[in-house]
Design a protein around this nucleic acid. Structure first.
Length: 254
DNA sequence: AATAAAAACAACCGCAAAGGC
DNA sequence: CGCCTTTGCGGTTGTTTTTAT
């Protein structure tokens, strides 16, 4: 037996919101807030389910929602964050003030995915060189402090020195290992990076993206990072990961 | 100008996580 | 601890708008 949709079975309205409904929702939330979405429509006098009200508010009516076209910078940021975070739209949206996960998801499916596909058919780095130059090997010589493929120690500062826009990137543990193994699960590296830089599960402090924060990984290692902007750090990791070309499996501190 | 196709956008649905009791 | 409710997320679908023929 197929379960009837929640709204229909209650005789609630579905589909596009009218201006009147918007006004009712806005004035109600402004006056009373939205403590309980399920109860809200009844209290506000809307023939909608709470889920629908929440979505309408989050994606459209919220005062801090930025409407209009995405800037080039925003598009680039989405592409790079998607490379790192995958389809975690809310996580991506959290790094783009005023943009919603739904909006980002839409623009990804309708535009950026195609753009990226075209982009990937061309050499990603050094467009002046031949097509064969896009190696799948990780070029260890690219980074200072890496002596050879394998277990080559390299400091985070060494990584960041190539990126002047990344300010004060300091690892308290000071040393990293780049482990050279075949990439079995592409998510392995990304999840580690994510855990270090993006996850709220860090036991350290991360008040906002402009501030220093101190992270403590589950193995007890501490590290301190100062990010000038989200774009800078994204650029840094995006570049590093892309250059890894599928060969870099782990980034470990020790 | 009409209409079909494609693109863009808004909204819905199911599921899982979180929170309260 | 387990159950129930609520919330949030991501996938998907439906509707509207734009573009091409």
């Amino acid at each position: 037996m197929v379960r009837a949709p929640c709204c229909e079975k209650m005789g609630l309205k579905k589909g596009p919101w009218t201006h009147e409904e918007d006004q009712i929702l806005i004035s109600y939330v402004q006056q009373y807030g939205h403590g309980n979405w399920r109860a809200l429509p009844k209290l506000a006098g809307l023939l909608r389910c709470g889920k629908s009200c929440r979505l309408r508010w989050i994606n459209y009516l919220r005062p801090d929602v930025k409407r209009g076209n995405f800037s080039k910078e925003e598009e680039e940021t989405i592409i790079k964050l998607h490379e790192i975070l995958g389809n975690r739209w809310s996580a991506i949206a959290a790094r783009l003030p005023g943009r919603t996960d739904n909006e980002i998801k839409n623009i990804w499916h309708t535009y950026l995915k195609k753009r990226l596909k075209n982009y990937q058919t061309e050499p990603k780095y050094d467009s002046t060189s031949s097509n064969e130059s896009k190696s799948t090997e990780f070029d260890f010589s690219t980074y200072q402090g890496i002596e050879s493929p394998g277990y080559a120690p390299v400091s985070l500062q060494d990584f960041s020195s190539e990126y002047s826009s990344v300010t004060n990137l300091t690892a308290l543990a000071n040393t990293m290992v780049v482990k050279d193994e075949k990439l079995e699960e592409s998510e392995t590296l990304f999840s580690r990076i994510d855990a270090q830089f993006w996850s709220d599960e860090l036991s350290g402090e991360k008040s906002n993206m402009d501030s220093d924060f101190l992270g403590v990984k589950d193995d007890g290692l501490q590290f301190q990072i100062s990010l000038s902007t989200i774009d800078d750090s994204t650029e840094f990791w995006y570049d590093l990961l892309t250059r890894a070309g599928g060969q870099l499996t782990e980034l470990l501190e020790f």
